[in-house]
Simulated scan of single mutants.
Amino acid sequence: MLGFPTQLKYIIGPVSVAFFIVIASLIPDNFLETLYFEPNKAFSGELWRIITGQFLHSNNAHMWMNIAGLALVWALHGDHYRIHHFWVLSIAGMLLVGLLVTLFSEYGIYTGFSGVLHFLLAYGAMIDIKNKDKTGYLLIIGLIAKVAYENIFGAAQSTEQLIDASVAVDAHAFGLVTGFLLFIVIKSLYI
């Protein structure tokens, strides 16, 4: 891709997701208790938390970092998705990452969209590879290196201080793996 995907059909998806993230930041504190993604409560039947909690963030810095991540997804792969594709993939990412966080992580509360961002970046990189765009290989290698580093050495303390929370490095790994695997499953169904 030589330029940014500036046609409205490519912009609406990421902008509408960002809009919901910003709206979620305006929810009064007394309602947040029922929306946070608490894996134990999701596992006990409060399944909406898997979606709602990923729209919530620990603070405004965390929110704006994730919105910047959405802008990166749009800049790299915006032309791959129309609005409904972007939303379907975002929800698939939230469900897959959320399910894995619920089953395999030990978070008291999980907030943020970064697991889904890793999912979207991995999925988009696989589309690039399918389209014979070599940058897809570079992005996959970079994502694998980043996630491996985070899971071996931990996230940067400066990031944790900025977002006033622990970085969910396993959610990043779950996003990377599920984005890659969902692409393979979909591709095998539509060959």
Rank of each mutant, 00 (worst) to 15 (best):
Y36S: 05
M63W: 06
F19W: 07
L95D: 03
L35G: 01
A148Q: 06
L72F: 11
V15F: 14
L89Q: 07
L8M: 13
L95G: 02
N59R: 10
P5R: 12
A75M: 13
F153K: 15
L72I: 11
I141L: 14
K9G: 09
T6K: 15
Y190L: 06
F43Y: 14
K146W: 12
G78M: 08
G175R: 07
G53H: 03
G98Y: 00
S25R: 13
T102S: 10
G3S: 15
H84Q: 09
H84L: 15
N151W: 10
H62E: 02
T111W: 02
I127F: 04
L117D: 08
Y123P: 04
H62G: 00
F86E: 14
A168N: 11
L56Q: 05
V185D: 02
I50W: 01
Y107P: 06
T178A: 01
E33K: 11
H77R: 13
F86Q: 12
H85V: 00
T52P: 03
G175M: 04
M65V: 07
V116D: 00
H85E: 10
W74Y: 12
A42L: 07
F20T: 11
L72H: 04
L35I: 06
F37L: 01
D133N: 14
L143M: 12
I21D: 05
L72G: 09
T102V: 01
E106R: 14
W87E: 09
H57C: 03
T102M: 15
A92H: 02
G154R: 15
L89D: 04
L189S: 06
L56V: 02
L139A: 04
S166L: 11
A61I: 13
L32S: 04
E46V: 03
D170Q: 15
A75R: 13
F183G: 02
F86I: 05
L47P: 00
G136C: 05
H85P: 00
G45R: 04
L96I: 07
R49K: 08
V147K: 06
A75S: 14
G45M: 02
Y149M: 05
A71F: 15
F104K: 11
V185R: 02
Q54A: 00
K9W: 02
Y149E: 08
L117E: 08
A42S: 13
L189H: 09
L99W: 10
K130M: 03
Y36G: 00
K187S: 13
L162Q: 12
